[in-house]
């Protein structure tokens, strides 16, 4: 039996809502910028703005990756742990702390790097490949072992933290390569390198999610995996792609973080998975799947970064930012729920 089909209104409302949300987020960001410009005399300075761009960049990349998984109606709790783990791995590789690896690579004709460790490029590539392998493992757990995404990514979250702590003996390793640590401080035409990375990540993400067929498949799997499968979509490949991309973004964040802090530490990004999820949700991604954009989580991340930055400048007790974030999440998801009910 068919159930009463809604009239034509809801879908018109939906399109308006999604545009409205995008515009609202830009508006919120702009309003905060204007507000802070008037309220403080330190906000609108090159120094502070590039600082803000750097802070936001880290979470923006993390949130973007998370969004791919959330669109499939999954969740990736491991991104903070993966990022932290990658700071350790990339540190090990650059500092030459992996016994035997240089000899092994030399055996393949790959020359060793300058400072006794691997070359920076090779160290980064290897770290990112490792992150992608972790993402593939998440998809394996979801697809082949039938584990809920929450569980498999929670499990790697704690396990990776443990492995990283074992590798570093619970301490922090210092990365002494100036080329590597200098990157995060660098800038191009007054735009911080970290922010440029966001653009470099966002452009292929935009093409993938909104202009390629694989993006369509991602939405289809999140909406109704069975219908997608019966329509000939390789849903396993789609799910693998989502988790690998999420982990890759987390890996990129790990490299950036290692560069920014100059350290490898197995817990330094722990907790940021919730920030990533919050950014994505504030950006309009639906935790029920099949709704999300590339620009949403980016805006969400920069809104949260601006709140944090503004609170600091205005000498507001920094704990307030947590409360504001919480209220924001409730409001956004509440309005999202209203939209759902109207259908």
């Amino acid at each position: 039996m068919s159930t009463p089909a809604p009239t034509a209104e809801p879908q018109r409302g939906r399109i308006e809502f999604s545009r409205l949300l995008g515009l609202t987020l830009v508006g919120v960001l702009a309003a905060m910028f204007v507000f802070l410009a008037f309220k403080t005399n330190t906000f609108w300075t090159v120094n502070n703005l590039s600082n803000l761009a750097r802070q936001g960049a880290i979470f923006a990349v993390l949130a973007l990756g998370e969004t791919f998984v959330i669109i499939t109606a999954g969740i990736d709790l491991s991104v903070g742990a993966v990022a932290s783990f990658v700071t350790v791995v990339v540190g090990f590789l650059i500092q030459g702390m992996v016994p035997g690896i240089q000899e092994t690579l030399a055996g393949f004709g790959i020359p060793e790097g300058l400072a006794g460790g691997l070359g920076i490029g090779l160290a980064i590539v290897l770290s990112l490949l490792l992150a992608m392998a972790i993402g593939a493992f998440h998809a394996f757990g979801v697809v082949r072992m039938g584990l809920p995404p929450f569980i498999i990514t929670l499990a790697t979250y704690t396990a990776l933290k443990g492995i990283g702590l074992l590798m570093t003996n619970g301490s922090t390793i210092n990365i002494t390569n100036d080329d590597f640590t200098g990157f995060s401080r660098g800038q191009l035409l007054f735009i911080p390198n970290l922010f440029i990375i966001v653009i470099i990540v966002a452009i292929p993400a935009l093409i993938y999610l909104h202009f390629s067929r694989f993006g369509r498949y991602l939405f289809a799997v999140g909406s109704n995996a069975e219908a997608a499968r019966l329509s000939g979509v390789n849903i396993h490949a789609v799910i693998y792609t989502a988790y690998i991309l999420s982990a890759l973004c987390a890996g990129i964040v790990g490299v950036l973080l290692a560069s920014r802090t100059g350290t490898g530490n197995a817990t330094q990004a722990i907790g940021s998975e919730l920030e990533a999820i919050a950014s994505s949700v504030i950006g309009g991604t639906s935790l029920f799947g099949a709704v999300g954009t590339v620009w949403g989580p980016l805006l969400g991340a920069f809104i949260l970064a601006t709140i944090r930055n503004g609170a600091n400048l205005m000498n507001v007790n920094s704990f307030w930012q947590y409360i504001i974030t919480g209220v924001l999440i409730i409001l956004i998801v509440y309005f999202d729920g209203l939209r759902r009910k109207k259908r």
Partner: peptide
Amino acid sequence: LCLNLSVGLNLNLPIFDRLTRGLTI
């Protein structure tokens, strides 16, 4: 059906490979 997706996406779901030119649809 993917109920919360568009009519167009549902209609084209089996043939997106043919609608693709290069990397993009």
